[in-house]
Every structure is written in structure tokens, then in C-alpha cells.
Design a protein around this nucleic acid. Structure first.
Length: 379
RNA sequence: GGGGAGGUGGCGGAGCGGUCAAUCGCAGCAGGCUGUAAACCUGCCGCCCAACGGGCUACGGAGGUUCGAACCCUCCCCUCCCCA
């Protein structure tokens, strides 16, 4: 922790592969690749840490193969920090192809239909072999809406799974590392708070998870369809129950507005597919709001995507050209758009950190939210 | 000159007596995407309207048969292919 401004926190995360300044946004690179981006572009855009996914990398190319290649960092040539998600999100997103039992989650592979069991222990082992700097516990990302009863049961199981993940990592740290083929001795592990949108469940989940004891804590199970204000409430309510000296990671969020709003509620780390996926689908985030580059109104627009942006895309190309590339189905559209969106996200995080450091975060927040809603007000 | 195939909405291409303003694909227009089964998905796509309904104009052109025609008949115009 380097400082605070209200509930917003400024910090540094030290990992075996370097430093991460927080609040941080982590681009999602599910399969060991931030789609459409080269590692060099990621560095230039200011990414300090990226995500990988346990489930996807286990299925293909396989965690054993990656361990033989020297671990995920070496395999994908990204020498900076990596966080791996546990596959807990796939429990949610692949709901119709999985079965949850106390032991773990059984999936039918989306690649070839073969059955695979992901347990707290195997998810921990796989991540140890991948060698990420931060491993996540296996949890159940609960769908919204869910009844109180479902949320309670799911949350309690996630807590039991978290304890098993922690126990497994302890074994690895205390000697099982070689046998398992772990590739990162300094790997940290984060617990995940669940509990749906129920305040008391979140409170119990936070207490139990903190009780187990992790290197950092995530808030999971949000941005799954619940109303925005409810999400903000849950975040605010959960974040302050987590240990002050440790990083807080809001999983799967969000829009640029979400990032600012949740930093304001005490969150330090974010990841989200929105900037990358939406870029490939033609939606660009700018300081003035969202631009759908497919729209006919940009066909002859000479201006840059975002006049306030200094990324390669904005420095070099017009909206007209970017629209043409998108409409023509050119691969470069995805690449240029992703570069811009990630640059905008990462630049926003930089500005957030500066504002917290100058203790002007609240003013920044007001101005940012007004600015970002400009385009939508116009139209 | 002889033989054959065909002309349908921006394009390609179904339909071959009523349930056709017309399947489908492309193009076009718009929307959605929040720990990635996503360079994906959805909607609209003849014109007009007091519009989950109604009106008008439509399937090369002109006639005709029929209660009813994009679909059947006649003539005309135009494409394409094969043989000379």
C-alpha cells in the first residue's frame, strides 16, 4: 500500500516476474494470448500483468507440455507477471457442459467432448505447472439470478474448495513442487469471495476466506447480469471487509465506468474481456464514450478514434479507414482496435493511479464519468 | 443458320396455380457483448401508414386462361451455352 484517497487505494504488487502498480487492469489472454495482440504491443500499451486460463490451457496445449517448455511465461514469451484464473468462470460459462459435485466440476470439453474433472487440487496443480505469478482458487461463479439458498450452498462449497486449494498449495510449497512439476516457486494464491448479491452471505464468505488465509482476495460472481447499482453495492460492501494490506481483485469487470466506480469502492485489480472482445466486434472505448466503428456515419470520418489517445491506432489511422478495415473483414481491424481499447483502459488506470497519488481521485472520477458519457448523450 | 438453357427484391439464387412482399446466402443498416466455446451473436432489410395491423406497387414487356398467376398459354424483348 502506497497511499489512499477516500476508499481508493494506491499500491504495488511484487511478483517473481516483476512489479504491478495498482489499481491495475489485466488484459485477458485466455489461451496464452491476448487476442490480436503481440506481447510487444501489450508492453507498449502499458500492460504490466495479463491473464491466462487454467481450463483452456489444460485442455490445449496442456499444462504438462507448458511445464516442459519452461512454464507459461517462457512459453508465451511474456516475462512480466501473469495471473491464471482457475476455471471457476467456466463453471458458469460452460454451465450446460458441466456437472458440479463436492469433489469438483466435471466438464465435457468444448473442443472434443471428452470428460475432464477439475478439482480444487487439480486446478492448483495445473496452475503450479503453468507457473503463473498469481493462481486463483477454484470456485463456483454463480449465475444471476439465484435464490438465497442456492447462493448460500454455492458459496459454502466455494469456501470448502478454497480451503482445499490452499492446502494443496501448501503441500506444493513444502516439498511436492518437484513431483508436480511446478515452474514458479514464488507463486501467490488468491481466495475468491462469493455469495451472490446477498450481503450477509458475502460477509460470511469474506470472513471464511480471509480465515483460510491467502496472498490476496478476489470478489467473484459479479458482472453476471445483475443490475449495476447492485453490483456496486456488493463491491463496496465486500471490499472493505478484506485485509487492508492485501490486494483486492474484482473478477471479470468491467466497463471503463465500472473501473473508476470500483476503484472508488476499494478495488485494486481488474480483468475483463470487454476491451479485447468488443474491439474485435467493432466497439471502441474512448474518452468521449463508445464508438461503434461499423456505423455508416464514420465512413468518411477523417478524425482519429479518440483525439485524446496517443496509441498507435489513434496516431496513425482515421475512423474512415478503421471502419473500412472492419467492414472488409481485415485482420488488422481486430489488431488495431484491440490496441486502442487496451491502450485506453491501461491509460485510464494510469490516470486513476495519478489521481489517487495526488489525492484528486474524486474530482477525476466526476470528470471521467461525465466525459465518457458524452457520445451517448449526443446520440 | 441449327440446337439448348434462362430472365425473380442491391447481387447470387430458391419458388413453379392459392398458406408469396416471395426460402436462403452475400452485401447493407442497427443493436448487443463484463474472471473469452465470441474476428461472435441478434434484429431489420420493396414503398407508405393513425403501424404485433392495414394499404400500394412488384417476380423482363404486353396480352390471355382462371374465382385466383412469380408460377399455365400466346406474342415480343433480352441474356447465356453448344454445334455450324
Amino acid at each position: 500500500m502506497l497511499g489512499t484517497d477516500g476508499a481508493a487505494r494506491l499500491g504495488e504488487l511484487h511478483t517473481p516476474h516483476g512489479l504491478v502498480q495498482t489499481p491495475a487492469f489485466m488484459p485477458v489472454g485466455t489461451q496464452g494470448s491476448v487476442k490480436a495482440m503481440r506481447q510487444r504491443d501489450l508492453e507498449e500499451a502499458g500492460a504490466q500483468i495479463i491473464l491466462g486460463n487454467t481450463y483452456h490451457l489444460y485442455l490445449r496445449p496442456g499444462d504438462q507440455l507448458i511445464a516442459r517448455r519452461g512454464g507459461l511465461h517462457r512459453f508465451i514469451a511474456w516475462p512480466h507477471p501473469i495471473l491464471t484464473d482457475s476455471g471457476g468462470y467456466q463453471v458458469f460459462s460452460l454451465a450446460d457442459r458441466r456437472k458440479i459435485a463436492e469433489d469438483g466440476a466435471e466438464f465435457r470439453s468444448h473442443l472434443d467432448g471428452s470428460p475432464h474433472l477439475l478439482t480444487p487440487e487439480s486446478a492448483t496443480d495445473i496452475q503450479a505447472r503453468l507457473g503463473s505469478d498469481i493462481a486463483m482458487v477454484l470456485d463456483e461463479c454463480l449465475a444471476y439470478p439465484a435464490t438465497r439458498d442456492e447462493a448460500a450452498r454455492s458459496m459454502e462449497r466455494s469456501v470448502r474448495w478454497a480451503a482445499r486449494c490452499r492446502a494443496r498449495l501448501t503441500q506444493i510449497r513444502e516439498g511436492a513442487s518437484g513431483e508436480i512439476g511446478a515452474t514458479n516457486a514464488g507463486q501467490a494464491q488468491f481466495g475468491i469471495v462469493q455469495g451472490g448479491v446477498f450481503q450477509d452471505l458475502r460477509e460470511r464468505s469474506a470472513a471464511s476466506t480471509v480465515d483460510i488465509g491467502f496472498d490476496g482476495y478476489a470478489i467473484g460472481g459479479l458482472s453476471v447480469g445483475e443490475p449495476l447499482d447492485l453490483m456496486y453495492t456488493v463491491v463496496a460492501d465486500t471490499a472493505h471487509r478484506l485485509p487492508e494490506a492485501q490486494p483486492r481483485y474484482l473478477m471479470g469487470t468491467g466497463t471503463p465506468e465500472d473501473l473508476v466506480e470500483c476503484v472508488a469502492r476499494g478495488v485494486d485489480m481488474f480483468d475483463c474481456v470487454l476491451p479485447t472482445r468488443n474491439a474485435r466486434n467493432g466497439q471502441l472505448f474512448t474518452s468521449q464514450g463508445r464508438v461503434n466503428i461499423r456505423n455508416a456515419r464514420y465512413a468518411e470520418d477523417e478524425g482519429p478514434v479518440d483525439p485524446a489517445c496517443t496509441c498507435y491506432t489513434c496516431r496513425t489511422h482515421s475512423r474512415a479507414y478503421l471502419r473500412h478495415l472492419y467492414m472488409a473483414g481485415e485482420m488488422s481491424a481486430g489488431a488495431l482496435n484491440t490496441l486502442h481499447n487496451l491502450s485506453f483502459y491501461l491509460d485510464t488506470m494510469r490516470r486513476i493511479r495519478d489521481a489517487i497519488s495526488l489525492r484528486t481521485f474524486d474530482r477525476f472520477r466526476q470528470e471521467f464519468l461525465r466525459s465518457v458519457s458524452r457520445l451517448s448523450l449526443d446520440s
